[in-house]
Computed example of a mutant assay.
Amino acid sequence: MKKLEKVVYVHQLKNEGFSISAIARKCDLTRNTVYTYLEKDFEAAMEWVEDLKTRKRKLDPYETHILNWLREHPDLSASQIADWLDERCSFKDIGESTVRTYVKELREKYHIPKVLDSRTFEALQELPKGKQMQVDFGELKVRTSKGSTIKLYVIAFVLSHSRYKYAEWQERPFTTKDVLRCHENAFQYYGGRTEEIVYDQDKLMTVSENGGDIIYTEEFQAYKENRRFNVYLCKKSDPQSKGKIENVVKFVKGNFGRNRVFHQIETWNEQCLAWLERKGNFQVHNTIKKRPVEVFALEKPHLREVSSLLSFESDLGSSITRTKVDPFVKTRNLNF
């Protein structure tokens, strides 16, 4: 719908008795925009629309960049484009809603449809500061600078209260020692640990179930006792327990990793940490409606202190390797 037609339609809906909220939903507008449209009569609306056609907008100098990105990667979200403008063009003086509107107009003008993706469910349970961290894994195929493709493996962490995230990538499937090393890096990144950590029943941590009790791998059992945190193991397909981390893995893969060109793992991880600071932990979270970095500042004093970092670099060959397999033990929830 053209802008002038939308202004007229907004007036029509108002005359028919629709509320401002209902008009906003029907027209895919914000309430403030609806109020702006209602303040204009038809002649004023025509002058306004003509003025918009000739007015230079903030994103116009970057139209070619954005258009090339959309043509090469039709699945790019406006959120990713806003991040790429910051990372690659050092342009950040603009709201994400403005980028979203601009991208939507480019898609319509150049007939570049958006590939839709379903949203992952996240339970709304809010936990106290320093109570819980969730951990999960992901895999992603990306293009390399040499034109080939490579599969990368990521482990992601999120503090359940503040939604403050950490992620680490590698070029091979995770072993138990890799997982424990990444825990140490995450504890260092956060400046402490939580009271409990949530996992799937994964063979890197668990061996079997015996009479209702989970038997952990030797390495993980020793690590758990050393770091003295409680463990919560999720049931299979249990979004209520681990929806937060499932959304984080999806966000890290989709917003950071998707359509990014891989050069080497060290550079990739550096870029990911920069993305976490710039986007992953800075963008306002849809559920808590706050920036995770700001909420984390209040949560950090509630984290448990971690002593000197442990080392897991030696004897990697004896570690269990994580592969994508079906669960091999019965599932249950455990509270400690």
Rank of each mutant, 00 (worst) to 15 (best):
M205F: 12
K26Q: 12
I150S: 04
H111D: 15
K289Q: 15
K92Q: 07
Y216A: 08
F187W: 13
K129P: 06
R25K: 15
T287W: 01
D60P: 07
K165T: 09
K14G: 00
T36G: 08
D51N: 14
P292F: 06
T144S: 14
G138R: 08
G130I: 05
E50D: 14
F312Q: 02
Q134N: 02
S208G: 03
K300M: 11
V248K: 02
I320T: 12
E246M: 04
E16K: 14
K151C: 11
I245L: 03
F296M: 08
H302V: 00
Y216I: 05
L4Y: 12
Q221C: 03
R260K: 15
R260N: 07
R260V: 02
V231D: 07
E184F: 01
K56D: 03
D238Y: 12
S314I: 11
T144V: 07
D326F: 08
A186K: 03
K129S: 04
K141H: 06
D83K: 00
E47H: 08
R31A: 04
M1C: 05
E171V: 13
K244P: 02
D41E: 07
W169V: 12
Q12E: 12
G211L: 07
V293E: 10
E122C: 08
T149K: 09
R57C: 01
K104E: 15
K236G: 06
G130T: 04
K146F: 06
F336Q: 14
S308W: 02
R107C: 11
F187V: 04
F157W: 08
E47Y: 04
K40P: 02
T144G: 15
D238M: 09
A123C: 11
V306N: 04
I23C: 05
R260E: 03
M1F: 05
D315M: 05
V293N: 09
V158N: 02
R143W: 10
Q201N: 15
K244Q: 11
Q221F: 04
N226L: 09
K146D: 12
Q12C: 01
V115K: 14
E218R: 15
P301Q: 05
F251H: 11
K141N: 10
G317R: 12
I265N: 05
V7N: 05
K177V: 06
L67Q: 01
D28Q: 09
